[in-house]
Design a protein around this nucleic acid. Sequence first.
DNA 1: ACATAAGCGGACCGCACGGTCCGGTTATGT
DNA 2: ACATAACCGGACCGTGCGGTCCGCTTATGT
Lengths: 223, 223
Amino acid sequence: MTEEERRRRADAERNRRRLLDSAQALFCERGLDVGVGEIAERAGVGRGTLFRNFASKEQLIAAIVAERMHEAACRGRELLGAPDPEAALFEFVQEVVGRQQLDRGLFEAVGGEFLANEEIREAHGEVISALDELLKRAKQAGAIRDDVGALDVLMMLKGVCQAASAFSHVNPGIVGRQLDLVRAAISVPAAAQPLQGRPPTLKDIEHAYLAEDARTQAKRAQG
Amino acid sequence: MTEEERRRRADAERNRRRLLDSAQALFCERGLDVGVGEIAERAGVGRGTLFRNFASKEQLIAAIVAERMHEAACRGRELLGAPDPEAALFEFVQEVVGRQQLDRGLFEAVGGEFLANEEIREAHGEVISALDELLKRAKQAGAIRDDVGALDVLMMLKGVCQAASAFSHVNPGIVGRQLDLVRAAISVPAAAQPLQGRPPTLKDIEHAYLAEDARTQAKRAQG
DNA sequence: ACATAAGCGGACCGCACGGTCCGGTTATGT
DNA sequence: ACATAACCGGACCGTGCGGTCCGCTTATGT
């Protein structure tokens, strides 16, 4: 040990990175329920190696999810410097939805029982704070009503994300449509612009289910 | 067998009812993840009896959930006869949320992978149809914008229900608040009335998690 | 009262999960 | 080149799940 800071072997460091990468990829595409065995296999290491780097699966999840939330919060703070407060707010809202749309694990972590985890809850708080600041600026600019809070918005976004994860692949316009509704709701008196896309239909549900099923069976066949 | 229609023994019928009742109760309070063992135990029968009445757990779930959805749809059709179309629509919306708030199993069945089940999806379709009719009437009355569909509304409700299931016990006003938002969204120009209740806070999340945790550990201690 | 079939229940099975452990391997400093 | 400790990987464990099976019980018609 010639250096104080260099106490871990190089291969250990490399394996940790591989584990984080493979877990991130699998959580993204299949959610947080993927088994630790599969994560280790994809990383090209054994299960033992996984558990030496992360004390439990929950801790691995927390490390990844918290990182993603931290990134989102940073983006939010960045948007605080944008010229148009209202545009900045809705840009952020749209990105938050987009991130969850691209990362199923992140989507599942928000609002589920995983908020029980200290690390995740803290990162979640960062996002809320950023959104809160953006809201405050937009309110001062007169664009947003005074009595809504960051969590009010986040809760509505939960519905949007749910819609996105369920239907966006059979009805791509659904996200923009729902985001429009977040702005204008369904009442006539508001100065409403026409909604984007086409209305979702019963067929969409069926297609969503069939696509999901086909994907599952494909995985099963190859595995 | 003196009667054609009487081919099942009385005790069998009684046990089936007990199973349905206990499953309903457990699904309500703890969600669809409760084990079949516990359901049978609460009903005072063995696991074998459960599987003789229902070929699989999924079928048991479908029987119960579809029944609840059917009830909701009936209520919706009933409201079609109400004098004020707009009031009827929002009464229905509120009741749909209320039902999911009182029944965690129902909440989980909507929008999750359980919509893959034919029986559930069909019953879900009934609810959508009822909501669609209510929407049409409200549109004709000029209360609702023309370009929203029943599923648009249902998706927003998903977010409301999520908020309800997570926070209603620490912030009872949250449901009315979110329902207000469904009507008016967050834009200033709308003729907005002040939101009900108080804004949700970060503390609410923490309390929700702590309460959930305490409940879980209580169950664990008594079981 | 009795014969009989329908019904019963809990022991049992296979499975998949998260997590542990230890004999063999390999990076690392001298 | 070598000694050594850090590291590796996969066999292994306990748990809890949905679902099956079979010997015993009991409702039911005569």
